[in-house]
């Protein structure tokens, strides 16, 4: 009998491991649509990713409450820029956050308007300025309307 004892110990060990595995691994963990090589996962995680909160709402969302800004922007060369690119994600504004941020920095405008000598890039189709020469130290919005740039403020 004593020669079999290690075997029983081994069997008990296997049993415990299987039990632990049964309790720990969720029921939906297994092979899903993409097969064993790529689809071995916990199915409910897909749902978890879908539940992430949406933060960027898009321009249409703002138009009802800020019609003046919306109209001005639509008629300007900046019509292609989303409001939220300059004001941050709306999330559930105006309930949360109450106000969106207003970025008045020169750096915001310079993302597109710093002159870069790249004729092979679309960058050269945007009017560029040299930030060190074009009214340094003064914020751009003082002279240009960000919602309706062009001749005259």
């Amino acid at each position: 009998m004593h020669v079999l004892r290690p075997l029983f110990v081994f069997l008990a060990f296997v049993g415990i491991v299987l039990m632990a595995r049964f309790l720990y691994v969720p029921a939906d963990f297994g092979i899903h649509e993409r097969g064993y090589m790529y689809g071995w996962h916990r199915k409910s995680n897909e749902e978890e990713w879908k539940q992430v909160r949406v933060k960027y709402q898009g321009m249409e969302y703002c138009s009802g409450c800020h019609p003046d800004k919306n109209k001005a922007l639509r008629e300007s060369p900046h019509r292609i820029i989303q409001c939220e690119n300059c004001h941050g994600p709306a999330i559930e504004h105006p309930s949360e956050p109450l106000k969106l941020s207003i970025d008045r920095s020169r750096e915001l405008c310079l993302r597109c308007h710093t002159y870069l000598p790249y004729p092979t890039s679309n960058r050269s189709n945007i009017k560029g300025i040299d930030p060190e020469r074009h009214n340094p130290g003064i914020e751009c919005f003082m002279c240009h309307n960000p919602h309706k740039p062009g001749p005259g403020r």
Binding site: F29, R34, G39, H41, R42, N45, E48
Partner: peptide, 26 residues
């Protein structure tokens, strides 16, 4: 996706629509 093949615990995977996701709990 080579990143999925090497995952030892099945925490990264490809959904049926082709997107590769990471299970943060796993």
């Amino acid at each position: 996706p080579p990143c999925v093949q090497v995952c030892p615990v099945g925490a990264t995977y490809q959904a049926s629509d082709g997107v590769v996701l990471v299970d943060r709990k796993w």
